[in-house]
């Protein structure tokens, strides 16, 4: 089967001085697959997520590379044709539902707005039914009452469900979820994750799931991409990645996770400054056993075992 989402050498960065923040990122996601994205703060996960919808925060622009969604080349489309993809093929949900929902509009008004844009063909009655169905689909048992609510009247878990309902309004086939459960408590997190899992199973919804939380990624993802300093440094099926991490950064990430109330400390600290990346391997300054080649050469992402890709000279 052809991959549903193909990202090829995607590069983007600061507009004013052309410093790349996300560099030559390539990966593929099959229909119905959940790709987990791990990586440290500032490594480019969110920027990559947004760029899958051809969206950029102020000051950031696209440099080069391709994104193919279901056979359509996102960056070859005319600006005016983007509406055919955004919200319909691919949608995004974010960390903080309170700041993405409009506080002065009811749930009904917000859903209505989105539905009018995506489905102008629906009559008023059809639209109302669709709204009720969407809320039921995200597990809200009393949709009529919830439609009248305002965001601040809802619990964190309900708000996140409303966000997901809004994202699903255009019947997208792929969902980018950027830390959608970081702001809610673990008990609500489980429910939102269960919901996404169900949508993945029942609707065949393809998901790109960004998170810091190893537990969450282990639980929801089929395959995982690990970002470091704007690049993918490792890509593998989830079990493999957790059991036999290969890249020194992934190993540090997994080893420093608390086990039985203890943390193993990886002493070489410090986030890499994306505008001052070293020559050669970007991880060399934090690497536990840096190799000689790392000073002058940049490692490539290579498939070193079946489906297991890593960017490190140790495995070449």
């Amino acid at each position: 089967m052809n991959p549903f989402l193909v990202v090829k050498n995607l590069t983007l960065g600061l507009t004013y001085n052309r410093v790349p923040l996300v560099e030559k990122v390539s990966f593929e996601v099959k229909k119905g697959e959940v790709l987990g994205v791990l990586g440290e703060s500032g490594s480019g996960k969110t920027l990559t997520g947004f760029s899958l919808l051809r969206l950029f925060p102020p000051g950031i622009s696209y440099y080069s590379g391709e994104v193919w969604i279901d056979g359509l080349s996102l960056y070859s489309l005319e600006e005016k044709d983007l509406f055919r993809i955004r919200g319909k093929k691919i949608a995004i949900i974010l960390q903080d539902p309170l700041s993405s929902l409009n506080p002065v509009l009811s749930v009904k008004e917000q859903l209505e707005e989105v539905l009018k844009a995506h489905r102008p063909d629906l009559t008023k009655k059809e639209r109302f039914d669709k709204m009720l169905n969407l809320l039921k689909e995200v597990g809200i048992s009393d949709p009529e009452i919830r439609l009248k609510s305002y965001p601040h009247q809802l619990s964190g878990g309900l708000r996140q469900r409303i966000m997901i309902a809004i994202a699903l309004a255009g019947d997208p086939e792929i969902l980018v979820a950027d830390e959608p459960t970081t702001a809610i408590d673990p008990t609500l997190q489980i429910q939102v994750l269960n919901l996404l899992k169900r949508l993945n199973r029942e609707r065949g919804l393809t998901i790109v799931f960004i998170s810091h939380d190893l537990g969450v990624i282990r639980w929801i993802a089929h395959r995982v991409a690990v970002f470091y300093a704007g690049e993918i440094v490792e890509l593998a099926p989830v079990e493999r990645l957790f059991l036999t991490p290969l890249h020194p950064y992934t190993q540090a990430l997994i080893n420093s996770y608390p086990k039985e109330g203890k943390f193993k400390v990886d002493l070489k600290g410090g986030v890499v400054e994306l505008s001052k990346k070293p020559e050669g391997c970007y991880y060399q300054l934090r690497c536990d056993h840096p190799c000689d080649k790392a000073k002058s050469y940049h490692p490539q992402l290579l498939e070193v075992a079946s489906q297991h890709w890593v960017r490190c000279f140790r495995y070449e």
């Binding site: 440290e40 703060s41 540090a252 996770y257 943390f263 193993k264 400390v265 990886d266 986030v271």
Partner: peptide, 11 residues
């Protein structure tokens, strides 16, 4: 903070 750095700070 990243979990690798979080561990250092907690320690």
């Amino acid at each position: 903070l990243d979990v690798t750095i979080q561990a250092q700070i907690l320690e």
